[in-house]
Simulated assay, not measured.
Amino acid sequence: MKPFTDGDFIKTVIIQAATRWFPGEDNRRDFMNIVQNTRLSPATITRKVNVMADHVHEQLNIDLKKCVRFSIHLDESTDKTDTAQLVVMIRFVLENGSVQEELLELIPLTRKTTGLDVYLSKKNSILAHEVPLEKLVAVTTDDAPSMTGKITGFSGQCLRDPDFPRFLSFHCIITPRSILWENFKYKNRV
């Protein structure tokens, strides 16, 4: 199925389910008319998805402004078109003590993937989201040299930047993906 083209399918399923939801003939007929007259074209669905995404983005920004402390987790990967992608996760603590973890951004690194490129992309992202940088307590990175280098890597660049506070820097050498792969290899040996 192509993205955002399943509106007619959804309408059909809802209309079929309406017989169980509304046993009374009058209510069912009114409901089915509303569903049939609802526009669910790909363009409409795209607009509605964008509205929902904007709402989620706004709520995340509100929560981040109110956070007590936060940490970021960075993982560099390459997609199927050979474009380097930087996955940025943020874990933060709110005033009420609740902890949330969210995907902050997926940043395509269209140039080289040096520590400086990653650092500049991430700093611009933090500034765009108006994250209170002074509340950063930890950074976890993958094993890519552009992340782990003490001088030219992402962590080294941040530690030298006066805008960044002192933070704990962690190097994650075992990603969930590699754990799953190892588990799969051992279970499927003959």
Results as ranks from 00 to 15, higher is better:
G24V: 12
T110R: 12
M1K: 15
T5R: 03
S98P: 05
C158D: 03
D161P: 04
V13Y: 10
H171T: 10
T114M: 07
N61M: 14
A43L: 09
L106E: 01
I173F: 13
F22M: 07
R189M: 05
E130N: 14
E105D: 15
K150T: 12
Y119W: 08
G156E: 08
F164A: 01
I173T: 11
T81W: 03
T12Y: 04
R39P: 06
E134C: 04
D54N: 13
P176I: 08
V99G: 00
T5N: 12
K185V: 12
L104K: 01
V87I: 14
K135G: 02
L109K: 13
D82T: 10
N96E: 11
P42I: 08
N33F: 10
E130H: 12
M1C: 07
L127D: 11
A128V: 00
R69C: 00
I14R: 03
V131M: 09
D75T: 12
Q16W: 08
A144G: 15
D142E: 02
N183I: 09
S41C: 11
D143P: 05
H55P: 04
K122E: 01
Y119C: 03
G24Y: 02
V49C: 09
V99K: 05
R69G: 00
F167G: 02
N27A: 15
D54L: 02
V190C: 05
P132G: 07
F184H: 08
F167H: 03
F31S: 04
D143E: 09
K122Y: 11
A138T: 07
H129F: 13
L40I: 02
F92P: 00
T12G: 04
D54G: 05
K150A: 08
K65Y: 01
D82W: 05
D30N: 14
N61V: 05
F154W: 13
N183Y: 10
F9C: 06
R20I: 15
L120C: 02
I173C: 12
A17P: 02
Q157F: 04
E182S: 07
L116P: 06
V131W: 10
V68C: 07
V99N: 01
L106V: 13
